[in-house]
């Protein structure tokens, strides 16, 4: 029996030790040193709702939000932004760093593509703006109306993609999602982020 207990106890200790090393220690370091950048506002209410839509529709499975250092790849040259730093994410929960680039990095999509119109068309059907895209279409974020109301956002569509009659307008989920995308903008320079030395 003591041997069994020894195995279990040692196994648990090893895991605790590992958690200390690769989660707790670096977290302490970050929490001691990371301060909110002046150039980064907390997400607006609409963007937070949009962020939930992003989570719920699983955009993270194809898009990272973590441009890498130039030594690791041409992320900056592709216009995805400077290397991300921990302070860029202080308002993010759940984190959406992602592990795939089936599509491009999105941490700075708001700066790279600030047009609401473009985003609406792209979400309705990506192939309407990028013929070779393999991103899924999200028609359920939109509805077809006879005629647009005064506050509706109408989606501009090439003839091939437009419905036979009526106009395509954004549902609230699409508006919030696009608001979130526009607020993805970490183009402020890193040296303006306040830092506090940990020791």
């Amino acid at each position: 029996m003591t041997r069994a207990l020894g195995i279990v106890a040692a196994a648990a200790m090893i895991l605790l030790f590992a958690a200390l090393m690769i989660v707790v220690m670096p977290s302490i370091q970050l929490q001691a040193s990371v301060r909110p950048p002046e150039g980064l506002k907390p997400y607006s209410e609409s963007a937070l709702v949009g962020r939930d839509v992003y989570v719920s529709l699983g955009c993270v499975y194809c898009h990272s939000q973590q441009p890498r250092d130039p030594s690791l790849g041409p992320d900056a040259i592709r216009g995805w932004g400077r290397a991300a730093v921990p302070a860029d994410f202080i308002y993010d929960s759940p984190h959406l760093l992602g592990t795939m680039r089936t599509g491009p990095d999105l941490l700075n999509i708001g700066a790279r593509q600030p047009s609401v119109d473009w985003h609406m068309t792209h979400l309705y059907n990506p192939r309407a703006v990028m013929p070779e895209s393999i991103m899924p279409a999200y028609p359920f974020l939109f509805e077809v109306k006879e005629e647009a109301g005064p506050r509706d956002i109408v989606v501009n569509l090439p003839d091939d993609f437009a419905p036979d009659g009526g106009v395509v307008v954004a549902r609230p989920a699409a508006r919030d999602l696009v608001q979130y995308l526009l607020e993805l903008d970490r183009t402020y320079p890193v040296d303006e982020i306040p830092v506090e030395e940990a020791d």
């Binding site: 699983g58 955009c59 499975y61 393999i134 279409a137 359920f140």
Partner: peptide
């Protein structure tokens, strides 16, 4: 869905980002 991006797109339950997880 990777090579048929317009397949099964009308129902949010069947969108790529939900079926994947």
């Amino acid at each position: 869905k990777f090579h048929m991006p317009d397949w099964l797109v009308n129902d949010p339950a069947l969108t790529f980002g939900r079926l994947r997880p």
